[in-house]
Write a protein that binds this DNA or RNA. Structure first.
Length: 434
RNA sequence: GGGGAGAUUCCAGAGCGGCCAAAUGGGGCAGACUGUAAAUCUGUUGACGUACGUCUUCGGAGGUUCGAAUCCUCCUCUCCCCA
């Protein structure tokens, strides 16, 4: 059985915790929860760090609760936001919750025969019938506005002018958020014996409102533990690719794209991510880093992370296909190599890249029409021309330089497939369907 | 309820009657160098046409003018301050 706090610590995931948390975890099997934001019907790689936290927690012999925020999702957490959030409607939320719940089941052990089996809870269940009056009398009474205003997430929005940020104001709704989240903790404390809430470091303020509430209302002792927010070397937001968020759901982000996302991570980030997103032991990690540094160009770390995470989130088969596709698209393979592949191999290898099905045509296509209207790889002809001028367009792995050229059936591999590349990293497949 | 500030192209933010498809910065995309890394440099970033050019854009609707993102009127929304 591993020591949870120590485990997070060496992995560089630990941010802060209330004194006594470590002792509590050593003393008894503890129940803890992490809340997930239901703003989409799928989790994305940003949530993956929290999932890993829960996995470590369960491995350490404790009981993880996953809270899907049906209620809090309706309000919107102001932490880290400089603007008021859009509210989701009930239907969307219900749909999103179902999607997320399903995904989580893959990462934790929900077997009810285990004493520390994971459970999913939805705060909508215990808030939906709670009246406003009850809430402000029984919950709001215990927390002062002064206390709530002192939270960074609130201060930041209220003192926007003083510190020169452009944050906009904050509605009462968002202001109440911490109290609603605190109420969740209170409820779980009373009903599920849950003594600990975890979350990203941006959740510290919200979590401690919960522990405070438990202390004042029940004279109980609850704990908090936060993890480091995942950062990127360049300061950008972690978890985005050219196409936006990187999702766990294969229909939103294909396993190939998912694999590529991890493979493209920078060296500096890779050293952090290998500890956060894989479950390799400390020795293995240190060995890999040392090995990577001897020959950084082999990108051993990126490959290891990509493998571990893709296999965990998708499967070994998907991972193998992703490697195969990567080898073709980024390797030196020529048109000839692809000519020799079977249709089904091509289809599976390219299953990760965007595919455009097009109709056969009597006349050859003008390249401009083909790639903007027949198969809209590019948003406009201007953009495509620019790309060609900049030497960024490749067809079937060969540079395309003629702005006004035509493409005919015979340019398609076996009269059927055409690989279009935008620069070096973005690939598309055009397929003539009969 | 009163007073003030503001709404500009992905974002921030200039422009304040013609020289504005709109400065500058950020971001994005591409190229060079590399290792599908980092850093750096270069180009590019409304649409259509190879191009001189044409068209649609500066919260919305009208108006003034040869001509408006820029002036006027009304409307909508946002923020701040005072009650």
């Amino acid at each position: 059985m591993t020591d949870f706090v120590e485990e997070l610590n060496w992995r560089g995931m630990l941010h802060n915790y209330i004194p006594g948390t470590e002792e509590l975890l050593k003393k008894e099997m503890t129940t803890a929860y992490i809340g997930f934001d239901p703003t989409s019907d799928s989790l994305h790689v940003g949530s993956l760090a929290q999932i890993m936290t829960l996995r470590h927690f369960q491995k350490a012999g404790h009981k993880p609760l996953v809270l899907v925020g049906g209620a809090t999702g309706m309000i919107g957490d102001p932490s880290g936001k400089s603007e008021e959030r859009n509210l989701l409607n009930e239907e969307t939320l219900a749909f999103n919750l179902a999607g997320i719940r399903k995904q989580l089941e893959k990462f934790l052990d929900f077997d009810p025969s285990l004493p520390n089996c994971a459970e999913v809870v939805n705060n909508y269940d215990w808030t939906k019938d709670y009246t406003f009056l009850d809430f402000i009398r029984d919950i709001g009474k215990h927390i002062t506005v002064n206390y709530m205003m002192a939270k960074d997430s609130v201060k930041k929005r209220i003192n926007a002018e003083d510190d020169g940020t452009n944050a906009t104001g904050m509605s009462f709704t968002e202001f109440s958020y911490q109290l609603v989240q605190g109420f969740d903790f209170l409820w779980l404390y009373e009903n599920k014996h849950c003594k600990l809430q975890m979350g990203g470091s941006d959740q510290w303020g919200n979590i401690t409102t919960g522990t405070e509430l438990i202390k004042r209302k029940l004279s109980g002792k609850a704990y908090a533990l936060t993890t480091q927010l995942i950062t990127k070397e360049d300061g950008g937001k972690f978890g985005k690719s050219e196409k936006g968020n990187v999702w766990i759901d294969a229909s939103k982000t294909t396993p190939y794209e998912f694999y590529q996302f991890w493979l493209k991570v920078s060296d500096t980030d890779a050293k952090k991510y290998i500890r956060i997103f894989t479950e390799l032991s400390k020795d293995e990690v240190e060995k890999l880093i040392a090995e990577h540094e001897l020959a950084p160009d082999t990108r051993l770390l990126q490959k290891t992370i990509a493998k571990e995470v893709t296999v965990l989130v998708h499967s070994l088969e998907e991972y193998n296909t992703a490697i195969e596709a990567s080898a073709i698209l980024f390797g030196k393979s020529t048109r000839q190599a692809i000519e020799n592949m079977s249709d089904s191999t091509i289809e599976s290898v390219f299953s990760g890249v965007p595919v455009f099905n097009i109709q056969p045509a009597a006349e050859p296509w003008n390249i401009l029409d083909l790639l903007t209207s027949v198969a809209p790889v590019f948003a406009s002809k201007g953009e495509l021309r620019r790309m060609i001028t900049e030497n960024g367009l490749s067809i079937n792995q060969e540079k395309w330089t003629k702005a006004d050229g035509v493409v005919s059936d015979s340019d398609f591999i076996r009269n059927k497939y055409l690989i279009v590349s935008k620069g070096k990293k973005q690939h598309f497949l055009l397929k003539i369907s009969n």
